[in-house]
Each structure stands twice: as C-alpha cells, then as structure tokens.
Design a protein around this nucleic acid. Structure first.
Length: 505
RNA sequence: GGCGCUAUGGUGCAACGGUUAGCACGCGGCCCUUUCAAGGCCGAAAUACGGGUUCGAUUCCCGUUAGCGCUACCA
C-alpha cells in the first residue's frame, strides 16, 4: 500500500511546457550533453513548448568562457534551436546570494564556518569514501557517516564569535533529520528518500558563489521551468533540490532523468573512448539528421520496431514515457549505418548542400563542373551516394566525377588494363561511342557489347577497362550509368586521353 | 563503506502476465552484379542467478551477483 505523495508535482502542468538545456562550459559539447539537449528539444517541439538555453558557469575554477561558442555551434550543427537565452548564471549571481540569504533568514539555511570538507568523516577527497569504520569493540561495526554539519547548532553568540574571528562563512541547507522526501520522476517513477540520508549541503560557498544545487533551483523557479529533463547522474541529488523548492515556497517541476551513455567498456563515455564531441562527428562527415536519429534512439524508443525516423517523425512521436531507464552503450557502427541511410534515402536535393560544403572544404568545388552544372552535379551525387558512408567519402570521388583532373589509379590499371588487345579495342570503342546518335544506358550498353562480341572477348573485359579509363578507379558505380551521367563528350575524350597511358604499359 | 538506480543476443531497442521472445546494427552465407557499394533472402546469437506470487512469468515481489550513479564550498 503506497501512499500518494502529497506534494505539488501532481498538479496539472501549465499549458505550454518550458524546458531548458543547461550545459556548463568546462568542455566541448559531448555526446551525452547533446542527447540531453536533443530530448529537451524534441519534448519542447512536440509539446509546442519553450526551450531555454542556460550556461551554468558558476565554477570559476573550471569554467572556460571561450568554450561557450563551441557548445552553441555544436547545438546549431545538430539543428537544435532554442527559444530563450543563452542565459549565463555568472550574470545572475546576486539572485542566488539573495536566495541564500532568504533561506538563512528563514532558518532553512545556516551559517557554516567549517573548513571545506572538514566534517564529512574527516577525509572528503573528491571521489573518495568519506566515512570511517568504528574502531575497537565490534569488528566490522560501521559508524554512520555524520552528515549533519556541527555548525547547524551553533548558538548566536558562538556564531558571532566565529564571525568576529573572520572565519569565512558558507551557507548550508538545514536538511531535515526525520521523515522522507518524495517526488515524481517521469522516467523512474515515484521516488522517496529518507531525509537522514541527505547531508547539510552547501548553498553558498564561502567565496559568495552559489553551488549547483542552489543556482539550478533558483533559476528553474525564476525561469518557470516545468520539466527538468537531464542526465540520470542527477537523480540522487534531486531530493536536495526538492527540499529547496519547498523551502523557497515553489512548486516542483516534473523531473525526467534520462539514462547515461556509456562507452564500449560500459563505463561512462569519456575522452578515453575516442571522439566524444559532436564537433568531431561533424568534421568526420556525419549528417546532423543521422546523428539526431541515432542519438534519439539511445535511451528512447517510440515503442515499435521502426528505427529510421526522420526528425519530423521523431518530434511527432517523442514522449517521456518512451524513455528507458537503462544506460546505453554508444555504438559507432550503428551510427555509421544511420549515416549511410541518410546519405541514401532522402531526395538527393537534400544532400547537395552538404556535399557542396564538403567539396568546398576540400578545395574541390571552385571551378569544377559540379559548381557550373547543378543538374549534373545532382545526378552524379545520386550515382555515387550508395557507395558512401560518410560525407567525406565524396571527396574521394570528386576529381573523377566533378573535374577532368584525375589520375588512373595504379591498382585499377594493374587489375583491369592487363590485356594487350585493350588499346586497340578502346580506340574502336571511342569511335563507335562518338558516332552514337542517342546517348543513353541501352545504346552505350549495346555498343560496348557489340564490340566485345565482334572482337571475341567477354564484355567484362571492356567494361572494367573502360571504367578505369573514364573515372580512373576500379571501384566505381556501374559503367553505363556512369557514362550517361558524364555525357558523351566527356566519356569519349576521357577514353582517348586514357589510350596513351594504356598503351605505355 | 553508505544510499540509490539498472539488468532481454556483442550493441541499441520491442514484447508493458499467455508470442515458435520481434526489429535493427555488427558478424557469417547465398542471391543480384563481369568493379565496389546499395538492396533482397537465410543463419548463428539473449530474457544474469536463486527463490517466491500466479493456471501461466522476460514481464509482479524478495534475495544474490554485476554494472552504473550519488555520497565536493564540481556541475
């Protein structure tokens, strides 16, 4: 028999949800952050709500202001647009201080004069166990960690004395020592934690700067955030924040904690695992929509078996109810598969701008035939794209397809230009093709096969040799389709240009 | 250590008491193709373990194990 939590999380949410993505500029936009941003964005767009961008830069030590631009760029590349912000916490410090003072005045908070990490078991090194075992009598008896700060019971004279000594003061939250704190999580369900497990956490540091716990709650209240969608690493700290909402007299939002993204070794994804910044995926030649599709399915599912979901479908089908509770391993191979799908399935016109940008980046665009003949560029891209996995793969085809400046690859020559009868036959082929009144797949096909028959050789010999002659490579799209796309003039001239090279072997 | 979360093939998901446990990636094979891809077909591959509850558990409960998270005057 579970009692129904009596807090305000069960109130009907306002018409239009307001969500936020709140990265801290201590690094680039990484895959995990991008996925959180994406979920917030999908939710906002699905619900017709508002997405706000907030930069959590209250940690002066680690904060790198110059990284903010990169984060914004990463979001833009991903196609995630926000409606408000970016707002910087570093510009809202007065608000947090005021809130901390209010909490202090109301008794919900108290002044703390401890040295940082002084009381929590004596040794609160980052990441280290901060408790201790009872010595003596009962072997193995554990002494419960003292999570209440001694300063919480300071009398006013004692406090004033510390103050006079000039000891730096922090403000801590006076965590309740009885009862439990409950809240509703849209992903993990109803949560309840015993208040004795909650320590007297710091609200305002002795340097006057707020901690995350304080600033996040003050901001989410001030910005009227209705749904807090963030990584599951924040799940354990949520009760503290719920306590703060209550102490501040505000309604709690709906929380939705999304599972973490792991590396192949099942530890939290980090630089050790290679590329983790979205920027690196952009540079590698992934399409933003493919990346979105892949990311959306990491910890979320629409419920059925469909996987190739264009962004509009993602938006239409997104729901917090579909978010999983299990951490997911980032699988690069699957990402690449998604990319091939997005390279192939959408109308070719959608792809053109990306290919053009890629060619420009490689310096292969200016002055190329592709830049001059748009329709032809489209047909060529359409022919090549089934053979690409990344956008950058197009540069490998670019010279042969979009310019007249290409080489005959050595391996291709070695493999398909061995036969000594080839020069004579290709010369005849050039003449025959040149005389063709209609230039299309079938006429090219018939001409080549006819010649092969007349010469008494297999068509394959000519097909492979001709392919090398007109695009310089052994691995290429089907010959006759390539010939149609290149056009008669290019094919014939390329064939003739190949002849001397061919004979010289 | 404490507290919490999680647990379906190698990976991502589906099945939300009744299915021969489904799909996709990856892997292997075949077809198509005188190149290479793409595509099609086939195959190997999973309910962590142990107890319950139930006519019936992948599904609900408990325990074990494992992984992860939190336990900072980081966010």
């Amino acid at each position: 028999m579970v009692s129904i939590p009596k807090n305000n999380t069960l109130m009907a949410p306002p018409e239009k949800p307001r969500v936020r993505f709140a990265p801290s500029p201590t690094g680039y936009l990484h895959v995990g952050g991008a996925r959180t941003a994406l979920f917030n964005w999908l939710f906002a767009r699905r619900e017709g709500g508002t997405l706000l961008l907030r930069i959590e830069d209250t940690d002066v030590e680690r904060n790198r202001p110059e990284l903010v631009e990169g984060i914004l760029e990463g979001l833009k590349w991903l196609g995630i647009d926000w409606d408000e912000g970016p707002l910087f916490q570093s510009q809202r410090l007065e608000m947090y201080r005021a809130a901390a003072e209010r909490l202090l005045a109301s008794g919900a908070g108290f002044a703390c004069y401890c040295k940082p990490a002084a009381y929590a078991g004596g040794d609160a090194a980052p990441g280290g166990a901060a408790d201790y075992e009872g010595e003596g009598d009962d072997e193995g008896a554990k002494v419960k960690k003292n999570i209440a700060c001694p300063c919480r019971d300071l009398t006013e004279p004692e406090r004033a004395a510390k103050q006079r000594e000039g000891i730096p003061r922090a403000i801590r939250f006076r965590a309740p020592r009885t009862g439990a704190t409950t809240f509703e999580d849209a992903v993990f369900g109803p949560r309840e934690v015993q208040n004795v497990e909650i320590e007297d956490f710091v609200l305002l540091r002795s340097n006057g700067l707020p901690t995350y716990q304080l600033s996040v709650v003050v901001d989410d209240i001030d910005m009227r955030i209705t749904h807090v969608i963030r990584g599951a690493d924040h799940l354990s700290n949520t009760p503290k924040q719920v306590l703060l909402y209550q102490a501040l007299g505000a309604a709690t939002p709906v929380f939705a904690h999304v599972p973490l993204i792991l590396g192949p070794d099942r530890t939290r994804l980090s630089k050790r695992h290679g590329a983790t910044s979205v920027g690196s995926y952009a540079e590698e030649g992934f399409l933003p929509e493919a990346f979105r599709n892949f990311l959306a399915l990491l910890g979320w599912s629409p419920g059925g078996d469909s996987e190739f979901l264009r962004t509009s479908e993602l938006v239409a089908r997104f729901s917090l109810a579909g978010v999983s509770r299990t951490n997911a391993v980032f699988d690069r191979a699957k990402l690449e598969w998604f990319n091939t799908q997005y390279l192939q399935k959408p109308p070719v016109e959608e792809l053109l701008p990306y290919v053009e940008a890629e060619l420009r980046r490689a310096g292969l665009w200016e002055g190329s035939q592709a830049s001059r003949e748009g329709a032809w560029f489209a047909r060529a891209v359409d022919l090549i794209r089934p053979r690409t996995r990344l956008l950058t793969d197009f540069t490998g085809w670019a010279r042969a397809f979009f310019t007249e400046d290409f080489d005959f690859e050595a391996e291709a020559r070695a493999k398909f230009w061995k036969d000594e009868r080839l020069p004579a036959m290709l010369e005849k082929l050039a003449v025959a093709l040149d005389a063709l009144p209609d230039w299309n797949h079938d006429s090219c096909d018939a001409t080549l096969r006819g010649l092969a028959a007349a010469e008494g050789v297999k068509a394959g010999l000519l097909i492979n040799a001709t392919r090398v002659a007109i695009v310089g490579r052994a691995v290429a799209p089907p010959l006759f389709e390539t010939m149609v796309v290149l056009g008669k003039d290019r094919v014939v001239s390329r064939l003739r240009r190949a002849l001397p090279v061919l004979s010289s072997r």
